[in-house]
Design a protein around this nucleic acid. Structure first.
Length: 259
DNA sequence: ATGACTAATTCGATTAGA
């Protein structure tokens, strides 16, 4: 089963680029972030024509997440547990069935958190704490699950072309990276780094200042695996050429294969 | 001179992203 994550920075604005990649790669499941539309405005019929069922947790203007799947989805969950007052659409999960095998696929859009310090950064750290609690509970089930999405976390210095530019930024502050390590320490495997221990690759390049042609990027889109999913991990790849599309998102897809 | 952004909302200036 091939599972991808992609922050599309508006599904309507970048529908051509997304559709071209889907048609070329034909992943089984895709977690989309920043669709920036409400449920009824999501182009579900368009994706049906491409062979995908859509499950959407939308929001007007900001945020919004969705799952696309060629395989049956069950037990859809919208919203990250732990704060009933949180109205931002940043989490969606479904169990994807392939024959006798099942994977719980969780798509997440972790808050950016800038400016830091401040209420937005507090929200980010609180969200990460809730994600830890969610993962802890899921791990007790001893089943295959994937936490895939835009984490807005640069895990280490080598995950940025110019790490000095990110000192003090919510994506790279020590407390941010510590919270990410705490999540991993629960027993999760970071797919890309597990398979490519020393590879330098990025998943985001700013639209500004020629970041893409200068390869001034950061790696912030990740797929974290439960032990039962990690046992099945075959590959993990960042599809960076998509950033050169005519009208691209500022993020590119990251895809894993589970056997 | 010097790669000075893009998208949504709504029609232009503001907010947000990272």
């Amino acid at each position: 089963m091939r599972i991808a994550t992609w922050n599309v920075n508006s599904i309507k604005a970048h529908l051509d680029s997304v559709s071209a990649w889907l048609t070329a790669e034909k992943p089984d499941v895709v977690c989309l972030q920043e669709i920036k539309c409400e449920d009824q405005a999501f182009p579900a019929a368009h994706f049906e024509d491409l062979g995908y069922q859509a499950t959407v947790h939308g929001q007007k203007t900001y945020n919004g997440v969705a799952l696309l799947s060629r395989l049956p989805m069950e037990d859809v969950q919208r919203g990250l547990p732990g704060d009933a007052s949180d109205e931002q659409a940043r989490f969606i999960a479904a169990t994807v069935i392939e024959g006798s095998k099942a994977v719980r696929v969780c798509g997440l859009y972790l808050p950016n958190g800038n400016p830091a310090p401040g209420p937005k950064y507090d929200y980010k750290l609180g969200w990460m704490k809730r994600l830890q609690e969610f993962a802890r509970a899921e791990l007790l089930k001893e089943e295959a699950f994937v936490l895939a999405g835009d984490y807005n976390v640069i895990p280490e210095a080598r995950d940025a072309r110019n790490p000095q530019n990110w000192v003090g930024d919510a994506l790279y502050l020590p407390a941010t990276r510590e919270a990410f390590r705490t999540l991993l320490a629960l027993g999760l495997t970071e797919s890309f780094r597990a398979l490519h221990p020393s590879m330098v690759e990025y998943s985001f390049w700013d639209y500004q200042a020629g970041a893409w042609p200068k390869n001034n990027g950061i790696r912030i889109d990740h797929l974290l695996l439960s032990p039962q999913a990690a046992d099945r991990l075959v590959s993990a790849e960042i599809h960076k050429t998509v950033r050169g599309d005519e009208k691209p998102s500022d993020h590119v897809p990251v895809m894993i294969e589970l056997g």
